[in-house]
Nucleic acid binder design. Structure first.
Lengths: 194, 194
DNA sequence: TTAGTTAGCTAACGACCGTTAGGCAACGGG
DNA sequence: CCCGTTGCCTAACGGTCGTTAGCTAACTAA
């Protein structure tokens, strides 16, 4: 399907150049069609963008829910949480989908702010919910220090994840790893029970 | 000076619409001059942007070094660290300078990547150095848990600060405060001695 | 077989982009 | 006093933007 190919390539262009910086001419050229042919599949640039964003948000959520599946108890809480951080960092480096979703959630085109923000907030809340579902049984098992509520453990873990994003955006790989390690160790010291 | 006014207004437009989305026509109109008159003060859009970026980076660094001045021992380490987080959050909400600096450091115009990245990395390193100067004497006084190095305490604190940025970008004030509180409490539990 | 839909094309539109040329008044130092 | 500089202007440049009109060939359903 051509529409899928357009969306795939448009996603990469939006991710690298932003909404304004991505041009339909460049996108269509890479797809191998002429610019007006895009209009056989999408009403315009806005509709193309929103379709790409919707799909990207769904894919990010699916990845998180898969990777963080609370049914899977084969490894320890600590390993699962740390592994998820590392996994997401690698995913960002590998997947344009994640780059697109982060960039466009941070800085959406001004005239589409409402549509993007409602989708973004929805995704963030559901990601946080998936994290909470990991912590709750762990807290019941006494793995979390009693001074730390499940909500605090979740919020602080999401903060560590956010900080990983930021360091990746700055692009300094070495510093990213150092910060991740430091943030994780202090986080785990603050959350674990003895 | 007109040049200063141009830079001030350009900063706001770049912060809100990104490099590509900000137009010299809009900027000049708000300044109260015609578009070509900008060229009496700057060689072009690129030079204007780099001048604005340079100033913005310097202002951010100055704010951090002032607010985190290690000479000031009037309040406790805990209060100073927590206060700095809150202060920076409020600064972001108030100052377009911070919004501009964050946005353009995350996603600089592709053809100016080298110039911006070297300035950004320089600023980040110096900000981190200022934070380290707060922790070092505190560690000597035994306020930091012996299992946590000064480097780890600094890195993890910078991570908390990064996460505050992210939450602010998403724009949900209520969630920002909750995440900040959670991140801070877990961080402090992980770092403090006893 | 035929009518309708799909997906591509070329040509062109108006709007806006950053930028340059060139003119004109105000000002400041020799 | 004059001359060079500064700072604004109008007009216009070439280029790119997203978008529309209208044509054609290919497939699909009746």
């Amino acid at each position: 399907m051509t529409a899928d190919k357009i969306m795939e390539i448009a996603l990469r262009h939006f991710a690298r150049h932003g909404y304004e910086g991505a041009s339909l001419a460049d996108i269509s050229a890479e797809v191998g069609i002429k610019k007006p042919s895009i209009y056989n599949h999408f009403k315009g640039k806005d509709e193309l963008f929103l379709a790409v964003y919707r799909d990207a948000a769904a894919r990010e959520l699916r990845y998180v829910e898969d990777d963080l599946n609370p049914e899977d108890r084969s490894s320890s809480l600590k390993d699962r949480l740390y592994g998820f951080l590392i996994g997401y960092k690698e995913r960002y480096e590998r997947e344009e989908n994640t780059k697109f979703f982060l960039r466009m959630s941070f800085f959406p085109p001004a005239h589409l702010l409402q549509e993007t923000m409602s989708m973004a907030n929805d995704s963030i809340d559901r990601i946080a919910a998936a994290v909470t579902e990991v912590f709750r049984p762990a807290a019941d098992d006494g793995l979390i220090h009693p001074d730390v509520t499940v909500e605090h453990a979740t919020g602080a873990y999401m903060a560590v994840l956010d900080s990983v994003f930021v360091e990746m955006l700055y692009g300094d790989h070495e510093r990213t790893m150092m910060r991740l390690e430091a943030a994780w160790q202090v986080y785990w010291r603050g959350v674990k029970n003895n």
